[in-house]
Design a protein around this nucleic acid. Sequence first.
RNA 1: GGGUCGCUAGCUCAAUUAGGCAGAGCAACGGACUCUUAAUCCGUAGGUUCGGGGUUCGAUUCCCCGGCGGCCUACCA
Length: 518
Amino acid sequence: MSESNPQYQPEPAADPEAAEGKLGEILEQRRRKLEQVRQEGGDPFVNRFPISHRIGEIADKYGELSDEEYEETKAQRFVVAGRVMAKRLQGKVVFMDLRDGTGRIQLFVRMNELGEEAFARVKELDIGDIVGSAGGVFRTRTKELSIWVREIQLLTKSMYPLPEKWHGLQDVETRYRQRYVDLIANPDVMGIFHKRSRMIQLMRRFLDDRGFLEVETPMMQPIAGGAAAKPFTTYHNTLDMPLYLRVAPELYLKRLVVGGIDRVYEINRNFRNEGISTQHNPEFTMVEFYMAYADYNDLMALTEEMLTGIVEDVAGGRTLTYGEEELSFETPWARFKWHDAIVELGECPAEVLRDAGAAREHALKLAARTGYPIPADMDHVHLLEFLFEETVEPKLRQPTFIYDFPRALSPLSKSREDDPEIVERFELIISGREIANAYTELNDPDDQRGRFEAQAAAREAGDEEAHEVDWDYLRALEYGLPPTAGEGIGIDRLAMLLTDSPSIRDVIFFPLMRKTQD
RNA sequence: GGGUCGCUAGCUCAAUUAGGCAGAGCAACGGACUCUUAAUCCGUAGGUUCGGGGUUCGAUUCCCCGGCGGCCUACCA
């Protein structure tokens, strides 16, 4: 543990001296039991306990047997281990619920089976203790699948009381700060993270099956490129060099495409030094993939295929319930050109597209309602962007592709062949949120240099989120980036939709929290 | 960052309307019980009411300052 921050004093672990009242009393009792185990020659923290089955396996393989078959399995030896979640004392019989990472099973412990001494030790076990047990598989009179316990042993003494069994752990702060308790006490939380892992597994499989190579690129970068965002800064002492935590892996992945890895992807964290909300965590997970000889139309089709597959697998159909909404992933998804959407969906007057003055007038009218300040020097494109975000985005509930963006909003995207002011880019919006962003990659080094220079000028003018010029990336483009399309999908936000979670913090094990001061 | 709401036993929640001895369930502890499953029954114990200050005879309750958190909002994905 670091001693560098005297203000930060984590609570001492299970120290009965430090805790008062009921908690201190419970901690003392647990300490006493631990000492008693040692005095009887036992080990309250054993090193190894070889199991024969995980608990879920027993339910799968032996859950549906006939009475005759249970006569056999009751005589056999199954060895399981897990955490005691409930204890029901019944005189000379004890029932306990044992849970491991795969499921829950009941232990049926009889004094006649174990003898008085061993049975007394079982009664001393606490809810929360990790135990190992051997015995037969059978069903009780009430037909509960159970282990007929012939041997039972404490493996790890739990020193802290668990939350209440029926309501679980409700306090959101404790749930985020002590996720391990949340996972023990709230089975639904376990389910959310299983779904998240499943979703990522399916993405990997989808991309692997299509010949994409999974890679890892730098998280610490001398230039933070690939997205418009404020980076975290850090420093390398030996090289005497400032570094940025990456805001996106984009420029490195495209360098790999130049190098010949013409289908490539990375699933990993990005870091953006911005606000925290139900939609934003400072570190978040993206899958970013690049496919040479494809354009943004190909990626729209690919995205539909990948996400419907995931939704079908994880949700069991093409429909998701998210809060009050029913989201249908039935293909094809709605598609609107960015400019058209402002008029057709946003119900802005058509002249805002052609006339900056009209756009300003309409933007000011909307801004008056929301109190958003429209700077006097805001140009036409950014006025339209404001109108889009204000009038269109909130209306897009069902999966929708918005495509053909203005070039000025897309410094790394390629222009359409028939219109240099429009780039081949799309965003996937679901439930009013941007889930994916993709484009045909700008591979003309001269064009890219021009865009970088425009960004550099914006940076000079004070835009902290504008790109720095990445000269090596320009050189890579000069070697030749084949025609390529690339896409990034926000994993956390997708996980929110798939698990019906209202906050991004519900799908991230350890969301960033302010440190506590005692 | 701004606004707003919240913080009571290890956990889940009462009591705050209008200031008057802070309660219950689970968990814990002692006892009964050889098929229970939110086991049941009898009994015991457990509180810096987030911290500090103020008003008051008296503050969990009212006021101020601070801490942490939720939600809304802003920057963004």
